[in-house]
Structures are given as C-alpha cells and as structure tokens.
Computed example of a mutant assay.
Amino acid sequence: MPRKVNIYVELSDLALKEQVLHKLTEDWSIKWSFIGKDENKATPEKTAIAVIDHPQTIPSIAQGVIIIFVGKHKEKNSFFAVVETPSPDSVFTVIRRAYSYWEITEQNTASLYSEKHEKQALESIAETLSAHIHQLTRQSEMRIALVDQLPIGVLGIDDENTIVLANPKAIDVLAVEDIPIWGLSVSSLLTESVGKFIRDEEKKEIVINRYGQNIIIRKAPFMLNDEFAGTILVLWKPTEK
C-alpha cells in the first residue's frame, strides 16, 4: 500500500489550486493526504510538502518541510523549487519531484545500512517503484475513464473523510462546478449528517436535500490490498436512476 504523504497546498489562485489538487487525486501511485490551513497551523510538523504562492505563508511552514513556491521570488535558494510561470502540469511535475526527494530523504534517515548497502537498496527500490508506477499509471487511467463516464455521481472519500475524487456527474448533481471540492471534508461540503452516515456501519443509504432537490446517497468501503482505504459514495437525484 502506498505511503501517505501530507501535502499543504495554499494558493491564492483558486482555479490553479483546484486543478493541481485534481491532478494529485488522479495520481493513484501515491496516497496524498491534503492538509488544510488550520491543520498546518496547529501541527505544522505533519506537513511533508508545502505548495505556496505568498511570502507571508512561509512563517507557518515548519523547518524541514519541502517548500515549492509558485510565482516569482528573489530568494530562490530558500525553496526546493520556484515555479515562475505556473500551470497545473508544471506545478504537478515539481510536486512529483519533491515527493521523490522526500521519499529518498525518509529512506536515508531510517537506513541502518552502510553506504554501499544503502545504494544497493535504493537502486532496488527505484527499480521496483518504476515498474509499479508504470503498472499503476495504466490501471489508474482505465479506472478514471470508467468512473468519469458513469451516469451517476461518484465521490471518493479517504480514511480521514476528505474528498479525493469526484467524477463529472457528481459535480453536476451537487452543483459545485465553480467550487474546488478536492481536499474538502465531506461534512463541510454535504453537512455533518453525511459525515455521520459514513461512520455508521449499519446505515447503507441516506437522502439529503440540496438547493431544494433530494439527492440519494449510498456508500461502499474502498479497499486497497485488503485494507480499508476510504469510502465510495454513489449519488443521484431520484428522477435520474
């Protein structure tokens, strides 16, 4: 099962932020865990990678965090990388580089081997990861295409009740075309009753009213390598199914 990586994305350009978060949720080879502003402030040491675009955010970032600055900044050496002309693809590419750096750093810190053995171990890990990522990339492309074409809404909720996936039909049913929902808690988007519904092991279906229209929601556990990884919510309006 992929290791969980805590990432804090705080960008003033909300459209860019939404697109970057969306690309991360499509990257199934890594289990990204999105850290909110309040959580980073309360426990900054939990953040592994931070993506920011304002100098005033820097003091809230803990020492040792890999910082990616989006936009122009005169002190480029203060950051892991500076993306001066940002786009969703360019920011995502740098985040993947930051993840690789973070992973190697973590492995080096935990390693008890000699330099020779460590090099051999890293080479072996790199080969395994390369093959695994290639396989996961093909699988994820197929899964995403299938989910995107479903005639009913699908939301993916991780084990911390954070929205990590939403297909086009779910965005349409919930009328959130202009709202970046990736990284939001399901309770903040769909009320606490839905959060309680997810935690209730007995209840299988709930009906909520949103903007004067009823929406039916059913759930199923999402498993990775026989371990619980989150919840899949299927939703539709009564007249659509």
Rank of each mutant, 00 (worst) to 15 (best):
M1A: 13
N6K: 15
E10A: 12
E10H: 11
L11I: 08
S12E: 14
A15G: 06
K17H: 10
D27N: 09
W28I: 02
I30N: 04
W32H: 07
W32C: 02
I35Y: 03
I35W: 03
N40T: 05
K41N: 08
T43V: 15
A48I: 02
I52L: 13
I52K: 05
T57S: 14
T57W: 05
T57F: 08
S60V: 05
S60W: 05
I61S: 09
V65M: 04
I67A: 12
I68D: 11
V70A: 07
N77Y: 15
S78Y: 10
F80C: 07
F80E: 07
T85N: 12
F92M: 09
R96D: 01
R97M: 12
Y101N: 11
I104R: 13
T105G: 09
Q107L: 15
T109V: 06
A110V: 01
A110R: 11
S111M: 02
S114P: 01
S114V: 04
K116V: 14
K116M: 08
K116A: 13
K116N: 10
K119I: 08
Q120A: 13
L122F: 06
I125V: 11
A126K: 08
A126V: 06
A126P: 00
L129C: 03
S130L: 11
A131V: 11
L136Q: 11
R138K: 12
R138D: 10
R138S: 09
E141A: 14
M142N: 10
I144A: 02
A145W: 04
A145V: 04
V147C: 01
Q149K: 09
L150D: 06
L150Q: 10
L150H: 05
I152R: 00
G156E: 01
I157D: 00
N161F: 06
I163A: 03
I163S: 02
P168M: 14
I171R: 14
D172G: 02
D172Q: 15
D178H: 13
P180A: 08
I181M: 09
I181K: 09
L189M: 14
L190S: 05
L190G: 05
T191E: 12
G195H: 04
G195R: 02
K196Y: 10
I198V: 13
D200Q: 02
E201I: 03
E202P: 00
K203A: 10
V207A: 05
I208P: 03
Y211T: 10
Y211I: 10
G212K: 12
I216Q: 10
I217T: 03
K219D: 02
M223D: 00
L224D: 03
F228C: 00
F228T: 00
T231V: 09
T231G: 02
L233Q: 01
K237N: 08
K237H: 15
